[in-house]
């Protein structure tokens, strides 16, 4: 059974249609070529390492890879570096601690940071009949382009159409299995990646977007134009508490998130202060929520997760 599953699952179905004979080699589009080179090498390396129980689990998974996913939530922001990935990571962990089955899909192809934040940067993706098996971090499943790169410093210098193709595969060819919530972390902006994710998720349903503040007025316009419901706004880095004198400084302007939520008629999910402990644990890939259950940041993240869950279930 294992042998069959490995053979059949060497490439996701779409790739099996690609003629690989020498005569047709030029037919292979550039990104598929990339996959053949990197994917095949990686697959061959792992044929021996596929965990039989995982492979069997996958055989039983449904073909429609997102069919058993309860809710899909996008994390968006127009501005970079406002903490989309940090918020995604912490929300995922908070939902996990609340007993939910959580998956995270990182569609930031040019700068994937979730694997590092969860401390799994050097893991690799396996194959099975149902598609790619996401990397498991405890009970959390994670998929990111970082797992497909041989060298973490490799740059993905891709134009839009290639990114769109890969995101299509991320959505349709990853065997997520049964999940309560799938969080999708996006790169900054309102461009190829965002449109690709939405298009591919259209067949399923997107429950909405949690938006971290920054340059989000444009992101809200994006949601309205594309018909995505906004679940709420999270204000990140809302102040810095000096560890020496406990004076709270608003490094970036404060209170904008709540005001914005009122202005646009969306829910304000909460604000997360700028906490060096949080950045440190994200750097080291530790679970902040487990490490610092007494901090104010912990309670704010948990509140946001709770609010999110309630609005998802209603």
């Amino acid at each position: 059974m294992l042998g069959r599953s490995v053979g059949a699952g060497l490439f996701p179905t779409r790739m099996l249609e690609v003629p690989v004979q020498a005569a047709h080699r030029e037919v292979i589009t550039a990104d598929l070529q990339w996959w053949i080179v990197h994917g095949a090498v990686a697959t061959n390396r792992h044929v021996a390492h596929i965990d039989p129980t995982r492979a069997r689990e996958c055989l039983f998974c449904d073909r429609g890879n997102l069919e058993k996913v309860g809710h899909v939530v996008l994390v968006l922001s127009g501005k970079g570096g406002v903490g989309k990935s940090t918020i995604t990571t912490e929300l995922a962990l908070a939902l996990l601690h609340a007993g939910k089955k959580v998956g995270v899909l990182d569609v930031d192809l040019c700068g994937p940071s979730i694997p590092r934040m969860l401390g799994v940067s050097n893991r690799e993706v396996h194959q099975c009949d149902a598609g790619w098996v996401p990397v498991c971090v405890g009970r959390l499943s994670l998929m990111s382009i970082a797992f497909l790169l041989d060298d973490p410093d490799d740059a993905i210098v891709w134009r839009g159409p290639k990114k769109t193709a890969l995101i299509g595969q991320f959505v349709s060819d990853v065997a997520w299995g049964e999940l309560d919530v799938l969080l999708v972390d996006t790169p900054p902006g309102t461009s190829d990646e965002h449109l690709a994710v939405l298009e591919n998720l259209k067949k399923h349903r997107v429950d909405g977007a949690a938006v971290s503040t920054g340059d989000v007025r444009r992101e809200i316009t994006f949601c309205k134009k594309t018909g995505v419901k906004i679940l709420g706004i999270v204000e990140n880095m809302s102040g810095f508490v000096c560890p020496h004198c406990t004076e709270c400084t608003s490094i970036f302007s404060k209170g904008g998130g709540e005001e914005l939520a009122k202005l646009t008629g969306s829910k304000f999910l909460g604000s997360v202060p700028l906490d060096p402990l949080l950045s440190a644990s994200v750097e080291e890939g530790r679970d902040f929520l487990q490490a610092f259950p007494e901090s104010a940041t912990y309670s704010s993240i948990r509140d946001i997760a709770d609010t999110l869950l309630t609005s998802l279930e209603h």
Partner: peptide, 17 residues
């Protein structure tokens, strides 16, 4: 690094791990 405007102490908000 961040210099607190009140106590002038320096802290690392984004630690260079």
């Amino acid at each position: 690094s961040f210099v607190c405007p009140k106590c002038k102490n320096t802290s690392q908000i984004f630690p260079p791990t």
